[in-house]
Design a protein around this nucleic acid. Sequence first.
DNA 1: AGTACCACCTGACGGC
DNA 2: TGCCGTCAGGTGGTAC
Length: 264
Amino acid sequence: MPELPDVEVFRRYLNATALHKTVKDVAVKDAGVLRGISGKKLKGRLNGRSLESTKRRGKHMLAGLDNGHWLTFHFGMTGYLEYFKVPSGEREHDRVVMEFRNGYRLAFVNRRKLGRMGLVEDAARFFAAHSLGPDALDLDLGNFEDLMEGRRGSVKPALMDQSLIAGIGNIYSDEILYQAGVHPKTPVGKLKEEAVRRLFHRMNHVLKMAIKRKADPDQLPQTWLLTHRQDGAACPRCGGKVRRIKISGRSTYLCPACQSKSGR
DNA sequence: AGTACCACCTGACGGC
DNA sequence: TGCCGTCAGGTGGTAC
């Protein structure tokens, strides 16, 4: 699930729920998701503190504590946040749960344990340690053109390279390429100037629209490829067949009729 | 520099 | 029904 739009939705969710509340206790249900800190230490550092702000870069989210330190979240493929007072039923995938003095809890939920949480003093150093490039939504056309300039491989791996541009994953890279009419295997160097511009504009459009629709696939336009990710499905634009191919082991969906390798 | 593959995890689904 | 392989939107490390 979590690419840039999803993480942005989580960030706004935390802003709307768990800010400015004093932490009473922290339950680390699975220390395996922690990085760089033990469960005991995390607990000690959070108790009595509160979350005062949030920031996001790509798929990473940080929550600023009232002592200047940062709680870090990465959601992996199945992570999300949930704020609640009374647990409804079994909560077997909660990995870390913070409890506040008001009786509410914020759970870091992660079915597959591919997500990560940590605590750092320096946000910039954290981003650097993960080799994160600029956030996809912080770029202007000139930045984007500069990043593509001199890039060697195919365009899809470039869009997904977090050290180049942070935030775009498998799903949204396919969507951006589809809307721009560019084949995912097109070498970046072969993209016409006009195609690079289209990619930039579609990137912004897709990410912003997805955030607006809460990154909920059910609310995303039926004209998008996203809602037709199935081999043999009808392309919403031309009625041709959507195909699934593999690019470095990841499923890639495209409409071969709409997406040309020449980059047009 | 860029790509492919594996590992890390759990669960859903289709075929037999 | 049970078993098996495959697939799923994440990253990090290694090998080429």
